[in-house]
Design a binder for these strands. Structure first.
Length: 270
DNA sequence: CAAAGAACCTGGCGGC
DNA sequence: TGCCGCCAGGTTCTTT
């Protein structure tokens, strides 16, 4: 999402929304498509921001357009006429005053678009967790969040109410980097390990941003290009291959209902 | 309140 | 080729 944000910011800031076409009403649920359309048309986009995995477009009347791509959403900048590829799984089209369009495609239809007024805004964002790339996110904060928790460290890291923005890929990679088994109870991780984990979370996310995201399957940036972080995965989706650190075979297990990859030698259970 | 599990949807893949 | 079950970048609702 940070890659998308960085690419979009200079492209759409200052642009006016000419028209909005909701092709799949599920994308605005529980709101009605007409409501989103009415609130967006004629507005100017003043900035593009991100909170966790949510993308936020600030509008000139104080409202905020919020998009979430979930698993298979693709947000690109397109210039009509749209190609066959661009029309596939098309769910939402936002036409700008420079003739370009922001198009939202989504094969699984999990993605969301919603509009927040200033009155709803605080409530909406305050329930979300810490931003792991902020300077203020450190070992002490991470330890405090995990203290007393019995559940495995991996789902705890992915709990968006605790930390915002760590998904399945980045949890696997950060835990490997820190040498911590994903099933370790969150409250049992030592101070020294928490320090390694806070660092590995930051370095993993930064590296993924530098490589412009992870394209396992459908992910594309706003120009339709694949990310490159998937080429550097140490354990994620690498079951059966040798651990890059010790050579032992990487395993796949299920943790918190999610496919989880780890090195059974490098990642300590206790 | 914390945590686990199911639900939401569609497409791709392996197995038979 | 066809059908079936399983799996998938995430969040949210329900249940325990």
């Amino acid at each position: 999402m940070e890659t998308i944000r960085r690419q979009l910011e200079p492209e759409v800031s200052g642009r006016k929304i000419v028209s909005v076409r909701v092709i799949d009403p599920l994308i605005t649920e529980p709101a009605l498509p007409a409501r989103l359309t009415r609130q967006l048309e004629g507005r100017k986009i003043t900035g593009v921001n991100r909170r966790g995995k949510y993308l936020r477009f600030d509008l000139d009347n104080g409202d905020t357009l919020v998009l979430h791509l979930r698993m298979t959403g693709i947000l690109t900048r397109a210039v009509p006429p749209l190609t066959a590829e661009e029309q596939k799984y098309l769910r939402l089209v936002i036409e700008l005053d420079d003739g370009a369009q922001l198009i939202f495609r989504d094969s699984r239809r999990f993605g969301k678009a919603l509009l927040l007024t200033p009155a709803d805004s605080a409530d909406y964002w305050n329930k979300m967790g810490l931003e792991p790339l902020e300077r203020s996110f450190n070992t002490a904060k991470l330890s405090a969040l995990m203290k007393g928790r019995a559940r495995p460290i991996k789902p705890a890291l992915m709990d968006q109410h605790l930390i915002a923005g760590i998904g399945n890929i980045y949890a696997d990679e950060a835990l490997f980097e820190a040498g911590i088994h994903p099933e370790r109870p969150a409250g049992d991780v030592s101070g020294k390990e928490m320090e390694a984990l806070a660092k590995s979370i930051k370095s993993t996310l930064r590296r993924a941003i530098r490589l412009e995201g992870s394209s396992i399957d459908s992910y594309r940036d706003t120009r339709g290009n694949r990310g490159r972080f998937q080429d550097t995965f140490r354990v994620h989706r690498r079951a059966g291959e040798p651990c890059p650190r010790c050579g032992k075979t990487i395993e796949k297990i299920k943790v918190g209902g999610r496919g989880t990859y780890l090195c059974p030698r490098c990642q300590k259970r206790r």
